[in-house]
């Protein structure tokens, strides 16, 4: 039983960044813009979030409050960075895949350069303890308390909160309806007076915010508040793309997909704790490949049936009807 608790406790902080970034991708792609740049956006957000933590860690502010402020900083930086993509893809009608790839390549290098210049290291190392041993009251509930409110991070609750907000915005508001129309049939949206360019900027910007926050939460929940330019976010941005596709561009399915991938990763890192797997005597490194291999397998089998937003990747041009 304790192994189950352990797996869940460790899985959630990993699942949350995937969830947020994939949700961000969903907002962008359902508005019609392919967002390959998620990895770069994540890393950009993580970097500024960690930088903020680095400067504020000596003050006596409560770590959980720092997470909240750091989240705002990371979200804002992600937004700024995503504007590069929207400007290129929406205003300049550039090829979205190439733009995304170039945005991804820029950031790890910039972080390395910056860190070498100012910290003489490969990244930013903070000394902050975000870990929550046990939430008062809630942590005492049998089963549930131990699963969700012990040995965890604030990011888990925040992430689920963003999921709820996303679902509501996506399905219950005028904004959501219009956004989805733009990714599916921009000509139809245009013909009823919706500003397709504005909605696409909005979609990409939301993906910037969620991507930045996701990056920061990765740095908090997976790397204990550190960021470095070599490993970056370990391909989580790309994994989030897979989660988004596996989740069929729909928020609840994205949650399930994120949990699935996070579970595999946690399992891979916990082999020693599970006697059966440990006894197999397979080198741990192979287990660590699991989430990435699963990505390939899952995409190979699901992408045939998957239905991407119809107009995604095609720059909208008013003149072509």
């Amino acid at each position: 039983m304790s192994t189950v608790y352990y797996l869940i406790q460790n899985m959630l902080p990993v699942a949350i960044p995937l969830l947020l970034v994939a949700l961000g991708g969903m907002f962008s792609e359902r508005s019609g813009i392919v967002n390959i740049a998620l990895e770069g956006i994540m890393l950009f957000g993580a970097f500024f979030g960690a930088l903020f933590v680095f400067f504020i860690q000596k003050s006596q502010i409560d770590p959980q409050v720092i997470i909240l402020i750091g989240m705002v900083v990371a979200g804002f930086s992600g937004l700024i960075y995503s504007l590069l993509l929207s400007f290129a893809a929406v205003t300049m009608k550039a090829n979205q895949t190439i733009t995304g790839v170039s945005l991804n390549m820029l950031i790890p290098a910039a972080i390395l350069l910056f860190s070498k210049m100012f910290f003489n290291s490969d990244g930013i190392t903070t000394n902050m303890n975000f870990y929550i041993r046990k939430v008062p009251v809630l942590g005492d509930i049998p089963f549930i308390g131990e699963m969700f409110f012990q040995k965890t991070y604030l990011t888990v609750v925040l992430g689920l909160f963003f999921l709820v907000i996303s679902v509501i915005v996506f399905y219950k508001t005028r904004f959501g309806l219009r956004l989805r129309a733009c990714g599916e049939h921009p000509q139809a949206a245009d013909s009823v007076g919706i500003n397709v360019y504005f909605m696409r900027y909005a979609g990409v910007s939301i993906s910037g915010i969620l991507g930045g926050i996701g990056g920061f939460f990765y740095s908090v929940g997976v790397l204990d508040g550190n960021v470095n330019g070599h490993t970056g976010v370990a391909g989580f941005g790309f994994l989030a793309l897979a989660v988004m596709i596996f989740g069929q561009w729909k928020p609840i399915r994205i949650l399930l997909a994120a949990l699935f991938f996070a579970f595999l990763r946690t399992l891979a890192y916990s082999v020693v704790l599970i006697p059966f797997l440990d006894n197999l005597g397979i080198n741990q490194t192979y287990y660590k490949m699991l989430p990435y291999i699963a990505t390939m397998v899952v995409l190979a089998f699901t992408s045939r049936k998957s239905r991407a937003p119809k107009a995604e990747g095609i720059p909208y041009d008013k003149a072509l009807r």
């Binding site: 309806l177 219009r178 049939h185 009823v192």
Partner: peptide
């Protein structure tokens, strides 16, 4: 037709003047 295929009939009718 200028209709969004994955929307319902009602959603298509109100789109833009929701």
């Amino acid at each position: 037709f200028k209709l969004v295929e994955i929307f319902t009939v009602l959603e298509n009718i109100i789109l833009g003047v929701e």
